[in-house]
Design a protein around this nucleic acid. Structure first.
Ligand SMILES: Nc1ncnc2c1ncn2[C@@H]1O[C@H](COP(=O)(O)OP(=O)(O)OP(=O)(O)O)[C@@H](O)[C@H]1O
Length: 751
DNA sequence: ACACACGGAATTTTT
DNA sequence: TTCCGTGTGT
């Protein structure tokens, strides 16, 4: 069936003065290659280009160009990596075109755009429009419950591992049946069972997890020709930013949506692919070329962001990766400050060194604002020391990502109460709040309740509303439960009749959550109380804003917004140094970038399961970090780092040795030299080299002598399981036998 | 049902 | 060091 093509050639339309000048304005800011990418509006276009070459700028300009050419904004989709990036895109569109268009463009993460579409069409898939989006905690709690029901010991099969496996299966488009068929080991068969039950439970709870938002979107489009046609036609121009980090499920949807018109525009850089652990496939770049053979491939080669020095360092580093798409990248900004490589005694010293560096830049006037400085690190835990130092120096700083406000316990409890108003089948939410504040409902009562609910095919909330008929539960508790149920029902009926903030306030008050925290005098309780107050204020503000812009001010809308927030989305306030992980820095740029913790084992992060492929990804991660910098780069490492509260010697990262030494201004240049040319083991101390052998195949065998930093030496007695979840029973010479998870335990093989 | 102490094990990255 | 999860006592 041919798809109706949308008329969009600007030359065919009546030349409107305003429009033409807009188009000129948009194209003026681009170089010829960029312009080609923007004006090639029909058919598939793939832009593969290095860091800072203007990929995001091109994508934005293209959306603006289409709008200026008369394409209705609601027919344009732009998939971004974060909501914040989507907001920025909208903002740019508002300037380049107009605010009305900016609001109507479909800009957002895959997850948030799909969530919208799924709500509109929920019935097609047997969900209600108010379905709940389960976050990781909800999934995990559910999986724990299922494991218990199946009498599977959570030590044998860690819930987290099950969750990760299921998530990965979904992103790879492996459905439960298929997973079950492929399951070979007992462990896999257990996971297959849980996977199946998990999906059934989600359905019953009228809930989807993050991954379902992708999978169900595919199901939706695949299940109905009519819907597929509708959306193929509506979304006439599809854009994808950070294409190198899309996964199979996302690509599948793109193929479906672009199947008719084939107007798919993707920008990416294979050298910046850093989410393979989440199912991202660099191969999607090649699949694009295979599946859209008529595509136009565009390369951008000028970097507008960084100095020559920074770019040279980045290029040299990434050259150490074997497999990559060759790219040229040059900059007109010749020269530049050398890259400082600072060495410190330990991480505290390192943190204060970082703060001193920031202070100096500011004092010298090299930066005009704190926000021009970013501190990047590999893992969130590293932020602590740095944070403390900034606080001590009274320099404003802001942590991007980390533990989000919305992940705090009291906030999640409050949100769970709210979830029940929208979705009475949300058992996970119910279990979260049933005894929060404490109502004297314990395990025994809950088991009775759950049994009754299961036997009567009712949700827990529904069960509670008829608690009096559950004989197994003590009279007094029946009453408590029934009250709770009635309260939820009553509030649900009030939805839409009261201003949202007021309703939530009242609800959380009557339900006893506010009073619970208010009545305790501990600092922690006070904190929690204030956080909930902040949440209510946030809701009130959200509702007001929504009312102002004439969009839906409903609770459902707010909950959706909150569920799909990404860690970097929280709004910036004031002038502050930015602290974040290297992952969170993707797509950003700063005049000054400080990368902390350039230590072997930390960047690259080495774990028991580390492979050479992981290592290449660590290198890309460092590449992303370096290329965020415009003017100045400071790289730091510590010669000692504490692990488990124990100080240990630590070596500078092998990656430092991969940077051209003439670009560096290093405290201890001799330390950075490459010990041997290449390979996973290069530059590792002896103990760590031995440790590596384990992951490269020389596994544990009974009788093998091993060394553990805390338990000392011992002998392997037994090996259970294989791969990531293998366990070893070790009889230590001093402390006796222990069962250790190979993946985590810092065990070394001894000769 | 719940508060508390104890012991044991361990540190990724996040839509 | 700090987080869990389990077990104990009220
Ligand atoms: N033609 C141009 N003229 C002037 N500045 C440009 C041009 N193209 C891009 N820039 C600037 O270069 C910087 C990098 O652009 P952008 O973020 O779009 O690159 P990118 O390829 O998406 O980067 P990355 O992949 O590293 O995130 C931005 O500050 C942008 O404004």
């Amino acid at each position: 069936m041919p798809i109706r093509r949308y008329l969009c050639d600007p030359h065919v339309r009546s030349p409107n003065q305003q429009r033409v000048s807009n188009i000129e304005r948009i194209l003026d800011q681009l170089n010829p290659e960029q312009r080609q990418a923007v004006t090639t509006t029909e058919g598939p276009v793939l832009v593969i280009a290095g860091a800072g070459s203007g990929k995001t700028r091109v994508l934005t300009a293209r959306v603006a160009y289409l709008i200026a050419s008369g394409i209705p904004p609601e027919r344009i989709v732009a998939m971004t990596f974060t909501n914040k990036a989507a907001d920025e895109l909208r903002h740019r569109i508002a300037t380049l075109c107009d605010a009305w268009s900016a609001r109507r463009v479909w800009a957002g993460t895959f997850h948030s755009i799909f969530a919208r579409l799924l709500r509109r069409n929920a019935e097609h898939l047997g969900f209600s429009p108010n379905f709940t989006i389960y976050d990781e905690d909800d999934s995990l709690a559910l999986i724990r419950r299922l494991l218990k029901e199946q009498n599977i010991d959570s030590k044998e099969l860690p819930p987290q591992a099950v969750r990760a496996t299921i998530s990965r299966a979904k992103n790879d488009l492996v459905v439960p049946e298929e997973y079950a068929q492929r399951a070979g080991t007992p462990r896999e068969r257990h996971i297959a069972t849980i996977y199946h039950l998990y999906q059934r439970a989600l359905r019953r709870a009228d809930a989807m997890d993050f991954d379902d938002l992708l999978v169900n979107m595919i199901d939706l489009l695949a299940s109905s020709d009519e819907l597929l046609q509708l959306y193929q036609d509506l979304f006439h121009y599809i854009h994808v930013d950070e294409y190198q980090d899309t996964n199979s499920a996302q690509y599948e949807v793109l193929k479906l949506l672009a199947g008719g018109h084939r107007n798919l525009f993707a920008v990416g850089d294979d050298a910046q692919s850093i989410y393979s652990w989440r199912g991202a496939r660099i191969e999607n770049i090649f699949d694009f070329q295979r599946d859209f053979p008529e595509h136009v491939l565009i390369r951008l080669e000028q970097n507008y962001r960084s100095t020559q020095v920074i770019l040279d360092a980045a290029n040299a580093l990434i050259g150490n990766n074997q497999q990559q798409i060759p790219k040229k990248l040059w900059t007109a900004r010749s020269g530049g400050e050398p890259i400082r490589v600072a060495s410190f005694w330990d991480e505290l010293d390192e943190a204060s060194g970082i703060v001193r560096y920031a202070e100096e830049l500011r004092a010298r006037g090299s930066v005009a604002a704190w926000s021009e400085i970013a501190v990047l690190y590999r893992i969130n835990a590293q932020s602590q020391a740095i944070e403390d130092e900034f606080r001590r120096a009274q320099i404003p700083y802001r942590i991007i990502g980390g533990i989000s406000f919305y992940k705090r316990k009291e906030i999640k409890d409050a949100l769970a109460y709210m979830r029940l108003l929208l979705n009475p089948n949300d058992d996970e939410a119910f279990l979260r709040i049933v005894n929060e504040p404490p109502r004297g409902i314990g395990q025994a009562t809950l088991e009775h309740l759950q049994r009754w609910a299961r036997e009567h095919h009712q949700s827990l909330l529904a069960a509670v509303q008829q608690a009096r008929s559950i004989g197994a539960i003590a009279k007094q508790k029946q009453l408590v439960l029934e009250q709770l149920g009635a309260l939820v029902a009553r509030t649900t009926a009030l939805l839409g009749t009261l201003p949202l903030g007021e309703l939530v306030h009242q609800y959380l008050d009557t339900v006893g959550l506010l009073g619970y925290y208010r009545s305790q005098s501990t600092e922690e309780a006070l904190d929690r109380f204030e956080n909930i107050a902040r949440l209510i204020a946030d809701i009130t503000q959200y509702a007001a804003q929504a009312a102002e812009s004439n969009t839906d001010a409903s609770l459902a809308e707010y909950m959706q917004h909150v569920s799909l927030l990404t860690s970097v989305d929280e709004a910036a306030t004031g002038d502050a140094v930015q602290l974040m992980t290297l992952h969170a820095a993707k797509g950003l740029e700063f005049p000054v970038v400080i990368i902390a913790g350039l230590n072997e084992g930390l960047l690259p992060l080495v774990r028991a399961t580390t492979t050479e492929r992981d290592n290449a990804e660590e290198r890309r991660l460092f590449y992303v970090g370096i290329t965020r910098a415009r003017e100045r780069l400071l790289l730091t490492y510590a010669r000692n780092r504490s692990r488990f509260g124990l100080m240990e010697g630590s070596l500078p990262s092998r990656f430092l040795g991969e940077l051209p030494q003439e670009l560096l201004d290093a405290d201890r240049p001799d330390e950075l030299r490459r010990t041997s040319s290449r390979g996973l083991l290069a530059g590792l101390p002896h103990a760590e080299q031995r440790m590596q052998h384990r992951s490269t195949g020389n596994g544990f065998r009974p009788g093998q002598r091993v060394l553990h930093p805390a338990f000392g030496s011992g002998t392997v007695e037994r090996v259970e399981g294989r791969g990531a979840d293998a366990k070893v029973r070790v009889r230590f010479d001093v402390v006796g036998t222990k069962l250790l998870l190979v993946r985590y335990a810092p065990l070394e093989l001894m000769e």
